[in-house]
């Protein structure tokens, strides 16, 4: 689904290669500052790239803006929900439909019925509570805001979903729900790249795990090779691979 080769951003990210297959959750971990978020931003056209090739569904793409990344089949749930995720004073509905608004419009005018229908459906599918999509999104709990951001991106019907710390600042119940949602999506053939610093989460959810250290990425660890000690070796650069 996603094949990245030799990705560099001219700064922190140095020659990163990784693949995400359909129906697979791939973990991406490392110490803070290892360049994980920068990889996601470079993939999604939020930061410039200096080298590397990206293929989505086998098609070479070169997104220079989030809009181009979306058209290529990528979706990105950012790490800092308040800063980069939600528009706090817009409703849940307006937040969910933001990337696909043009598709819900006729001659530039939003078709409200259609939009409301889609928002209600997404709220139900993702178990957003309270279920009323007309509420200001800032009034929802962190976990429900996060579900809304995930619902926003799944509405674009992406091939690959990049999740950056999807359960940070989310209570235990919502965390389990979000993991269940991710599991369902993967079962339907979505590829997921999950960036996370929480090793238990990474090890529990991922099919394979990449570890980054100072902008470089190590070959992936398969499920059977996963252990906290092994990941920490790679993350701190102590491993002699």
């Amino acid at each position: 689904m996603l094949e990245v080769e030799g990705l560099s951003d001219g700064g922190r990210v140095r020659h990163v290669s990784l693949t995400v297959r359909a129906g697979e959750i791939v973990g991406l971990t490392g110490l803070v500052g290892a360049g994980r978020t920068e990889v996601a931003q470079a993939l999604f056209g939020l930061a410039p790239r200096s080298a590397g090739s990206i293929r989505v569904r086998g098609v070479p793409v070169c997104p220079r803006s989030p809009a181009q990344a979306r058209r290529a089949g990528l979706a990105y749930v950012p790490e800092d929900r308040k800063r980069d995720g939600i528009a706090p004073n817009l409703s849940v509905r307006e937040n969910i439909t933001l990337p696909i608004l043009s598709r819900l419009a006729w001659l530039g005018t939003v078709r409200l019925r259609k939009e409301q229908g889609l928002a209600r459906q997404q709220a139900r599918t993702f178990g957003i509570s309270p279920a009323d999509p007309e509420r200001r999104i800032a009034t929802l709990s962190g976990g429900n805001q996060q579900k809304a951001v995930i619902a926003r991106w799944l509405a674009t019907q992406p091939a690959v979903l990049i999740l950056d710390e999807p359960t940070r600042g989310v209570d235990v119940g919502a965390k389990a729900e979000i993991h269940a949602i991710i599991g369902d999506l993967v079962a339907q053939g979505l590829g997921v790249l999950m960036i996370s610093s929480e090793l238990p989460e990474v090890m529990a959810v991922s099919d394979r795990v990449y570890v980054m250290h100072e902008g470089r990425i190590a070959p992936p660890l398969a499920r059977g090779e996963l252990s906290e000690a092994r990941i920490m070796e790679l993350a701190t650069g102590e491993a002699t691979a």
Partner: peptide, 16 residues
């Protein structure tokens, strides 16, 4: 409205 409400989030949500 989205741009004025949260510029960074609107950017990430593909708003021009």
């Amino acid at each position: 409205r989205a741009t004025g409400d949260n510029y960074a989030a609107a950017t990430a949500a593909t708003v021009p």
